[in-house]
Design a protein around this nucleic acid. Structure first.
Length: 595
RNA sequence: GGCCGCGUGGCGCAACUGAAUAGCGCAUCAGAUUUCGGCUCUGAGGGUUGCAGGUUUGAAUCCUGCCGCGGUCACCA
């Protein structure tokens, strides 16, 4: 049983015995740094149940605990706070009880599965900074869910159809001269993206010409021949025209190859893929059913709606008057389809920007009205935009930060810093490149994941990202330094890592602090999972690392004569490094053995 | 305009979901290594938590009203 539970139940009995009162619950919190103690019980809320002087109550409960709970060594009362000091042996027992710190805090996988959707790009534009935030959040939340005991399916829905795709296709056909990724040595997504831009240029040119001929802006936009042609292409695509489909498949294939390369560099992956070309017709039959059940209603013109005014929202269109589907229809259909495909899915997480908050609110509400049990477990992992100092990213104005370029720049910065330090001169070229990638991406990922997803991020490419202070590389550095100590320790005594018995030894204050933080790891994972928040993991890791550095500075690890102490400290350092590695894995960040 | 989100030292972020003197990093200043990697550590200065009320023994956190920033209000996706 966890110490918190023991204390809660013991405090309840204490209050019952001494004051004859029954407490519903007891509020515990970690003791603040400026006071002596490990866990603090707050007395104030008890005064609602029975009257008394908070200090006296704390005093009497404290005395009871010291007498009856072996883990409690002593206590002190400050105002209405009962600070409880746990014994050293309690902490050492905890440390010995952990079999393996590399999997510590992870709950083994249960039956229930959750599907996490993230990335979900268009196939006509390369990935940019906004996708990076999306992908990092989605991947990390997936890993956190897994650690918290869920089975996870990582997925994305790829927007591979529609007029925008036809624009790139048309431009390539017209101006491409048969270019391919191989012939141009360009990533496929970049090549296709270029033609999307090319279309836009031509389109604008035609609009200008039409305006010169006396057309209004509106007319020109609608009548431009190149746009007409793109629309014609979409009709052909929908009619299943062989040539059009073949071109579409070829160009999309290029894009997917390009995306895969980017994902590989970022270090994320997917278990299953959904394509809009497969799903855009889904959902209509569900609308029919919902009509029968009274979830939806039909207007005179034949359009179908869902009335959400009782919930304080508007009426929402789910089927056009001509019977065709809208975005909402598709999303309803896709959600249902996913549970058909993976029957163990009991909930879903959608990683999508906050401009779609309303859409998902409505989607979830409709799915609930339709009566799906899993609809109770839907979560929109909504995140704020990544803005640049110049303002919003706009692809047309060329103010997008390309994901591949960004990662390359981060790697470059890491290279510069590492070369100055010169600690890894004996690394091979490949090892060096891999290390720079680990550090550069670590900096970028940590920078993005440590902040609350709801907040906007202002990203300044010039200043880039820090490597000191509360950053990824700072934590990676600490990890590498611990590895260095462990290597030295193993040189002199190869068997040093393993079970240790250390009874009756006085723990150093810093050791105790470290053990305290290590002990919080399992609940931190749970908390992060409940809140879908990688930031909680990031901040925990930082606290752990900061505490370790402080320990490292004030306590000799290898340079001590006391053999028991040395063995304990080496093992403690090892445990810290294992937890750093494990926590960073939840963020999708690797740690280097040397740097 | 309606609805949603955000607002915390100069800058970037925390605060265990209502508790003690609101923490941390960057920047600034002052220190520390006969020691295991100084990308480290210790300390100092810097705050009326956007403003005004309210609830509570206790509010950055909950309620009301303003102010500012962003988003969203399509038979687009």
């Amino acid at each position: 049983m966890a110490i918190q539970q023991i204390l809660v139940s013991q405090i309840k009995t204490a209050v019952n015995e001494i004051y004859g009162a029954t407490l519903e619950n007891v509020e515990l919190q970690p003791t603040r740094k400026d006071f002596e103690g490990d866990i603090t019980a707050v007395i104030f809320p008890m005064l609602r149940v029975f009257k008394g002087n908070p200090v006296q109550i704390g005093q009497s409960i404290g005395e009871y605990l010291v007498k009856n709970v072996s883990e409690v060594e002593k206590f002190n009362v400050v105002q209405g706070f009962l600070n409880i000091v746990l014994s050293d042996s309690y902490y050492i027992d905890f440390f010995n009880s952990v079999e393996d710190f590399s999997t510590y805090g992870h709950i083994s996988q249960g039956k229930e599965a959750v599907m996490v959707e993230y990335s979900s790009p268009n196939t006509n534009k390369p990935l940019h900074l906004g996708h990076v935030r999306n992908v990092l959040l989605g991947y990390s939340v997936s890993e956190i869910e897994k650690a918290a005991g869920k089975k996870v399916y990582k997925t994305q829905i790829i927007n591979d159809r529609g007029i925008h795709i036809c624009k790139s296709m048309l431009a390539w056909e017209r101006f491409g001269n048969g270019e391919t990724p191989e012939s141009t040595n360009l990533k496929g997504d970049k090549l296709v993206g270029n033609y999307y831009v090319r279309f836009d240029q031509e389109y604008k040119k035609e609009i200008e010409e039409l305006k010169q001929q006396g057309k209004t802006e509106e007319e020109a936009k609608a009548e431009a021949p190149i746009l007409k042609e793109a629309q014609e292409m979409l009709r052909k695509w929908e009619a299943g025209d062989e040539e059009t489909i073949a071109l579409w498949k070829k160009m999309n294939g290029w894009v997917y190859d390009g995306f895969e390369k980017s994902y590989k560099t970022i270090g994320v992956d997917f278990d299953t893929y959904y394509y809009e070309s497969d799903t855009y017709l889904l959902g209509k039959d569900i609308i029919e059913e919902g009509l029968k059940n009274g979830v939806f209603f039909k207007k005179e013109d034949g359009s179908v709606w869902c009335d959400l005014t009782p919930e304080g929202l508007d009426e929402k269109l789910v089927l056009r008057s001509d019977g065709t589907a809208v975005y909402m229809t598709q999303d309803i259909g896709t959600a249902v389809q996913r549970v058909k495909d993976y029957p163990d899915v009991g909930g879903m997480i959608y990683t999508v920007g906050n401009e779609q908050d309303y859409h998902f609110k409505v989607l979830f509400l409709i799915l609930k009205k339709l009566g799906y049990s899993w609809a109770e477990n839907l979560f929109h992992l909504s995140y704020g935009m990544v803005d640049l100092p110049s303002g919003k990213m706009k692809s047309r104005e060329g103010t997008v930060v390309d994901a591949d370029d960004l990662m390359a720049e981060m790697t470059d910065t890491a290279r510069k810093i590492s070369e100055e330090l010169g600690k890894i001169d004996d690394f091979s070229e490949e090892e060096k490149e891999e290390l720079y990638r680990i550090i550069g991406l670590g900096a970028l990922k940590y920078y993005i994941l440590k902040v609350d997803p709801k907040k906007r991020i202002l990203f300044n490419p010039e200043e880039s990202v820090d490597f000191q202070g509360n950053t990824g590389p700072f934590i990676q550095y600490t990890y590498a330094r611990i590895q260095s100590i462990l290597r030295k320790a193993k040189e002199s005594s190869p068997e040093i890592l393993g079970k240790i018995e250390m009874s009756g030894v006085k723990l150093h204050e810093k050791e105790k602090e470290l053990l305290k933080i290590l002990q919080q790891y399992p609940e931190t994972i749970q908390l992060a999972a409940e809140n879908h928040s990688p930031a909680i993991i990031a901040n925990y890791t930082y606290d752990l690392v900061k505490e370790f550095n402080s320990f490292y500075q004030s306590v000799p690890i290898l340079a001590t004569d006391n053999q028991t102490e040395k063995v304990f400290r080496v093992n403690l350092s090892n445990a810290v490094s294992e937890v750093i590695k494990s926590a960073f894995a939840l963020l999708g960040i690797q740690v280097p053995i040397r740097m």
